[in-house]
C-alpha cells in the first residue's frame, strides 16, 4: 500500500504546487511509483507546472462520479515513466467534498502507487480539510515571513484535529519545507533563519529551498526545476525527494551559501 502525503500551507502563493511537482518527479526519479493529484480546485496549476495541460481529458470528478476508470484518467509523464498525474476538477463540483468518494479514490491510488502526493488548497480555503482527511504524512510549505508562518500553524492545527488518522488515535507525521530562502537576507538579519522557524513551529525539517530565478523559467516551460542539475533549488528538491524515499541525506546550509565575505563577518555578530 502506498503512502499518502498532503502538501499543505497556511496561505496561498508560497510554492505548494511547485513543491508538489518537483517532489513528485524527484520521487519518481528515485525509482518509486508516484502519482501527484491536484486537489487545489480553486487554483489548479499542477498540470501547467508538469507540462501536461494539453493531455488532460478526464479529471478526478469523472473518476468519482461518472464511472471513468483511473487508468483512463491518469496521465503518465514523459519526463519519468514512474510519475503519473490526476487532474483537478474544472468546476467546483460538490462531490469533491464528499469524504466517502475521496476515500475510495485515494484507496484505489494507494493500491497502485508507492507514493500518492496531494496538492492541497491553502489551509484557509474550503476543500483543505478534505485533502488532509486521509493523509499519512504532511509536507508543510512555508516562506520565511510572518504571515506564511503564522497561517501554517493554523493549517497544522486543522490537520491535527480533522484528519482520519488523528481521529483513529494515530498521528499524521508532519515535515517542514522552508521555501524561497534568500541567503543574503538571512545573513544580514532581515529574514528569519531556519532555526528560528523550526523553534516557532516545532515540527521536523525536511528541506530548505533557496530562492531561485530559474523557477519562473521552469514553470514557463512546464519542466520542474529538479531537472536542472545546476539549479540550487533543483538540487534542494532532489534532496527532499530522497529523504521522503527513506534515504539519509545531510542538510546543506543553503542560508550561508553565496553570502559575501562582509555578510559572513556581519553574520557573526548578529
Amino acid at each position: 500500500m502506498g503512502i499518502v502525503i498532503a502538501v499543505i500551507s497556511g496561505k496561498g502563493g508560497v510554492g505548494k504546487t511547485t513543491t508538489t511537482a518537483n517532489i513528485g518527479l524527484g520521487i519518481a526519479q528515485n525509482g518509486k511509483k508516484c502519482v501527484v493529484v491536484d486537489f487545489d480546485i480553486g487554483q489548479r496549476n499542477l498540470d501547467m507546472l508538469l507540462g501536461l495541460e494539453n493531455r488532460v481529458v478526464y479529471d478526478m470528478v469523472h473518476v468519482m462520479d461518472e464511472g471513468v476508470s483511473l487508468k483512463q484518467a491518469l496521465i503518465k509523464s514523459k519526463m519519468d515513466s514512474n510519475l503519473s498525474f490526476l487532474a483537478a476538477s474544472q468546476t467546483k463540483d460538490k462531490s469533491v467534498l464528499d469524504s466517502d468518494k475521496i476515500y475510495k479514490l485515494i484507496e484505489d491510488l494507494k493500491a497502485e502507487f508507492d507514493f500518492v502526493i496531494l496538492d492541497a488548497p491553502a489551509g484557509i480555503e474550503s476543500g483543505y480539510e478534505h485533502t488532509i482527511e486521509f493523509a499519512d504524512r504532511a509536507l508543510v510549505v512555508v516562506n520565511p515571513e510572518v504571515s506564511s508562518i503564522r497561517d501554517s500553524d493554523r493549517a497544522i492545527g486543522i490537520l491535527d484535529s480533522k484528519s482520519k488518522k488523528v481521529k483513529d488515535g494515530q498521528e499524521v507525521d508532519k515535515f517542514l519545507i522552508i521555501n524561497r530562502i534568500d541567503p543574503k537576507m538571512v545573513q544580514s538579519g532581515e529574514m528569519l533563519n531556519s532555526e528560528d522557524i523550526l523553534e516557532i513551529l516545532s515540527i521536523p525539517l525536511i528541506g530548505k529551498i533557496p530562492e531561485d530565478k530559474g523557477i519562473i523559467d521552469a514553470s514557463n516551460q512546464g519542466k520542474p526545476i529538479i531537472l536542472d542539475a545546476n539549479s540550487k533549488a533543483g538540487q534542494a528538491y532532489k534532496r527532499v525527494a530522497s529523504r521522503i524515499c527513506g534515504e539519509k541525506v545531510d542538510f546543506v546550509d543553503v542560508e550561508s551559501e553565496s553570502a559575501g565575505f562582509m555578510q559572513k563577518i556581519k553574520g557573526m555578530f548578529l
Binding site: 510572518v146 532581515e190 528569519l192
Partner: peptide, 8 residues
C-alpha cells in the same frame, strides 16, 4: 535591531 529578531 535585526528585523528577523523582531519577526521571531
Amino acid at each position: 535591531k535585526s528585523s528577523a529578531k523582531t519577526a521571531k
